[in-house]
Amino acid sequence: MDLIVPRDSSPNALAERHWLMRGSPVIAVDSVTKRYDGLTVLNSISLAVHEGQVAVLIGASGGGKSTLLKCINMLEPPESGKIYVEGADITAKRADLRQLRARLGIVFQDYNLFPHMTVLGNLTLAPIRVSRLSKDEARTRAEEELRRVGLEGKINAWPSQLSGGQRQRVAIARALAMRPTALLLDEITSALDPESVADVLSVVRELAAQGATMLIVTHHMGFAREVADRVMFIDGGSILEEGTPTEVFDESKEERTRNFLRRVRFA
C-alpha cells in the first residue's frame, strides 16, 4: 500500500471513506497506556486511522499527543495495550520493529535533520540502508520528493544553510522518501515563523489532497478544520471527544473541549 492513493471525491466515495465504514485501519491503537515514573500520560487510549484518512489530534500542552505518536512507532514502548500497523502488531515481542517503523513516516517539531549530511544524504540514508535501494534509485527518489516539497534546488545544501521552513520541508521529504503507508506529523509548524508555516502547511494540504493517510498533531485549528476527516480531542491522557471537524469544532458536546477551543482561539 502506498501513502499516496488517488482520492475520489464523488459523494459515494466520500461516504465510503468514513472511518466506521472502512475495512482494517492503517493504524489501530487499542487501549494503550503509557506512564512516566508513575505519571499516567496515556490512559487506555484507542483510535484508528484508515487508508486515505486525515486524522487530527488536538489538545492542551502536556496532554500526551507527542507521547502517543512516539508510541505508535515504538520510540516509546507503551506499558500496556496494542498497536497495529496495517494489521501487524507492532507491540508484539517478536515484531520486526525496523520494518514496521520504515512503513510509518514521522516528522517532528524540531525537524531532527542529520546535521552532518547534506539534504541528499538525509533523504537517501534510510532508502539505501533500510529499503536497500541503489544509490541511483535513492537519488532519483530524493529528487522526486524534494520536487514535491518545492526544494529541488537544495539537494546539495547542508541543513545549516536552510531556513526553518525549508528544513521542515526536507524532513517531510525524508519521511516520504521511505514511501510510508502513513505519516505522523507532530506539531511540525510550531518552531516556524508565519511565512514558513504557510509553506509547510501547503505541502501537507497537498498531501491530503492526494489521499495521504495522516495522523496530525497541530495547534492551527483553521488548518485542522480544513484538512481533517476526523478530529480527536485528547485530554488527560484519553480521547475525550472525536468526530468530524464540524462535530468537534462547532457542536462539541464536552465542556472541556469547548474551553480548550475558546482558549486557543484567543491565544
Binding site: R98, Q99, R101, I106, D110, N112, A126, R129, V130
Partner: peptide
C-alpha cells in the same frame, strides 16, 4: 536523543544508527 529517534523512526537498526548518525 532526538537524533537517535529520528534515525530509528526511519527504520535504521541500533548499529546503523550508531554508524551513520
Amino acid at each position: 536523543t532526538s537524533q537517535l529517534q529520528a534515525s530509528q523512526a526511519l527504520g535504521l537498526s541500533r548499529l546503523a544508527t550508531m554508524r551513520h548518525v
